[in-house]
Simulated assay, not measured.
Amino acid sequence: MPFDYSLDFPNINFRQHPELYRIGKGEQGVLLVEPYKSEILTYWRFKNPEIAQESSEKIYEIFLAYLEHEDFVGADMARKFLQMGYTRSRRYANHKSGRKYQKNELKSGSKKEILPYDVDPIKAESAAIFKAKWIQAKTNEKYLQLLAQHKQMYEVD
């Protein structure tokens, strides 16, 4: 079931209403779903490997705490922040400005032009740190059990 962007996110506490949460794809909803966004975002950093290590470890610790409380939505949001740590630091590793595409007017049917790569080994290392924690989270046995349970209970077509 796709992520539902039509919900009134500022006025929903997903800890109290997990039935409204849809997993979606990738990082969908990572900056919308409260109270988790506010609980995790403050720790999300990837400027250099030391900061990325500290950040990813803290977010993984939060992930485990959510699992301990059988809070799938919180665990999934922490997983999404770890994934976003990987994808954003990878983006900056490849493009110093953080912009992947050339700014220009697109004509109907034309493809976006990707900017040239400007590899930053520091950000690449940050990305690798987040990727390892993200994989650890998304393959966690308890997470996978809660994921299946959430899908069975709430995401039935």
Rank of each mutant, 00 (worst) to 15 (best):
P49G: 10
E68H: 14
Y92K: 06
V119E: 09
S56D: 05
Y92I: 02
K107P: 05
R88A: 14
S89V: 06
V73I: 02
F46H: 11
H95D: 11
V73W: 02
N104Q: 12
E50W: 12
G85F: 04
K131Y: 08
S97A: 03
E70M: 06
R91H: 12
I51G: 03
E113R: 11
Y60F: 15
F46L: 10
F130T: 06
K111H: 14
K103C: 06
W134D: 00
Q53M: 10
E50Y: 10
K133D: 07
L67S: 01
E57I: 08
I59R: 00
K112I: 06
A65Q: 13
T139Y: 11
R90Q: 10
Y86I: 12
Q53D: 06
R88F: 08
E50T: 10
N94K: 14
S110A: 15
T139V: 09
Q102E: 07
K123T: 04
E54N: 13
A137Y: 01
A132N: 08
P49R: 06
M84K: 15
R88N: 09
Y66V: 06
N140V: 13
T139F: 12
K133Y: 14
Q102C: 04
K100N: 05
Y60T: 07
A137W: 02
Y66R: 05
D120L: 03
S126G: 09
Y117Q: 13
L115R: 13
S97M: 00
K96H: 11
F63Q: 07
A128H: 12
K47Y: 05
Q83F: 11
E68P: 04
V119L: 14
A127F: 12
N48C: 07
K123P: 05
D71Y: 03
K100V: 13
P49I: 08
I122D: 03
E68A: 14
V73F: 01
P49L: 08
P49C: 10
R99G: 00
L106G: 04
K111E: 15
H95W: 15
A78Q: 03
F81Q: 02
Y101A: 01
A78W: 01
K103V: 11
H69A: 12
K47T: 05
R79H: 13
I114K: 15
E68G: 09
E125M: 09
S126V: 13
R90D: 08
I62P: 05
E54G: 09
E50N: 14
E68Q: 14
G85S: 10
K107T: 15
I129C: 04
P116R: 09
K107R: 14
Y60P: 03
Q102H: 06
N104G: 07
G74D: 02
S89E: 07
L115W: 10
E105W: 15
A124P: 00
G98A: 03
A75G: 05
K96I: 12
K133F: 12
T87M: 14
I135F: 09
K96Q: 12
E54W: 15
K47Q: 10
D71Q: 03
S89F: 11
L67T: 01
A93D: 13
E70V: 06
K103P: 02
I122R: 03
A137Q: 01
G85M: 05
T87H: 13
D76T: 02
F72C: 04
E125L: 14
Y101N: 00
K80Q: 02
D118L: 15
F130Y: 14
K112N: 11
E61K: 12
Y101W: 02
